[in-house]
Amino acid sequence: MALLEVKDLHVSYGAIKAVQGISFTVNEGEVVTLLGANGAGKSTTMNTIIGVVKAASGEIWFQGDNIAALPSHQIIKRGIAVSPEGRQVFPRMSVTENLRMGAYAYSDKSLIDEGIERAFTLFPVLKERNTQLAGTLSGGEQQMLAVARALMGKPKLLILDEPSLGLAPIIVKEIFSLIKEINAMGITILLVEQNAKMALGVSDRGYVLETGRIVLSGDSKDLLVNEQVKNAYLGG
């Protein structure tokens, strides 16, 4: 059984049909990439999975339950965490307070201490800046904080929406090697990326989204050599 199964999902913003009947699965232990141009509906799909945006129709199965109608606070409790597009850190909270917010859905204190320690090991720069207000961090540091915050609750499914956006190439490399590391910790990852080459490089499978529909899917190694993908996302 898949960890996450999205079935015929439709999402609209008023008259705008952002997602028009997509279906895909993420199996336990996998890294799955969602590729697509700007406005294809990737973030909408992510936000619908965690309940921040509500589906017009369709099903979202997580660990055997349809969570499509649940409020986000109940979905998060079930073990899904997100590092959202645009980082969305809490600007007037310190780095440590932001991390604590990442474990908000859980009350286990040892989980929080463990999570903070793990975050500081994965991102030493966050440790150096643990008392600094998140709003004063650099863009890259905020991105690391967003990923670290999402890891706090040791989620079963980690959703990363464009974690490399706006980062220097060297940091991008770091982020992607980190994705592998996180996956090796036993966390399943659903990754949204513009950087198709890097994303397919770390993932097992991928889906290509175009104007709200899935137009292509397959193993990452096949997608990497696919002509359509090459032309659209790998610069020819």
């Binding site: 309940g51 986000s72 959202p84 969305q88 007037r92």
Partner: peptide
């Protein structure tokens, strides 16, 4: 500070 992010953290806003 950020209502949408709060929901993403599991806060029952």
């Amino acid at each position: 500070q950020n209502q949408v992010a709060s929901r993403m953290m599991g806060v029952n806003v």
